[in-house]
């Protein structure tokens, strides 16, 4: 969809028009660079995927072995905080390991949300090791359908 701003109209006898054009070009460039943020490995555990729907944001994370009671979520303005731990220590005595690839430890991650969300309407569920957080967008940023009436 072409998005035409008010300032995009041709401006006659505007000495700054050329600068405006350059600025728009730079905006365009930074926007297309932002698209490259997809499929980039995270450097903080846990890796997250984020999906956007017209009225909500969905964030998913794979957290195998993390119990619900060991996970804590909080939202502060436009920052979502995710904390928890995984304890994979075996209590049985006299065991010998063949392979050890699963780690134990704690994690803490904060993520800035791309849009304003309604802090009162946040839902999270942990199902088979996958965390899904649903954040409803604040009503100000939810797109609204405008009905066109004929006279």
């Amino acid at each position: 969809m072409a998005f035409i701003r008010f300032v995009d109209r041709p401006t006659f006898r505007n000495p700054w028009a050329e600068f405006e054009r350059i600025r728009q070009g730079l905006d365009e460039l930074s926007r297309s660079y932002g698209e490259k943020g997809k499929n980039q490995p995270a450097n903080v555990y846990p890796p997250l995927n984020m999906y956007e729907e017209p009225d909500r944001l969905l964030i998913t994370a794979e957290l195998p072995g993390v119990r619900v009671e060991d996970l804590s979520l909080s939202i502060d303005g436009e920052t979502l905080n995710l904390q928890g731990k995984r304890d994979n220590h075996q209590s049985e005595p006299g065991i010998s390991y063949h392979r050890r690839e699963i780690e134990s430890g704690s994690f803490s991650r904060a993520i800035g949300l791309p849009v304003k969300v309604d802090n009162e309407r946040v839902a999270a569920k942990l199902n088979n090791g996958v965390l899904t957080i649903t954040l409803m967008k604040a009503s100000a940023v939810t797109p609204r359908q405008i009905n066109v009436s004929a006279e």
Partner: peptide
């Protein structure tokens, strides 16, 4: 496969 969940805006892991 995950249910259709809208537009993917951040992908840090694959399933």
């Amino acid at each position: 496969p995950p249910k259709h969940m809208g537009r993917l805006i951040l992908e840090e892991y694959e399933t």
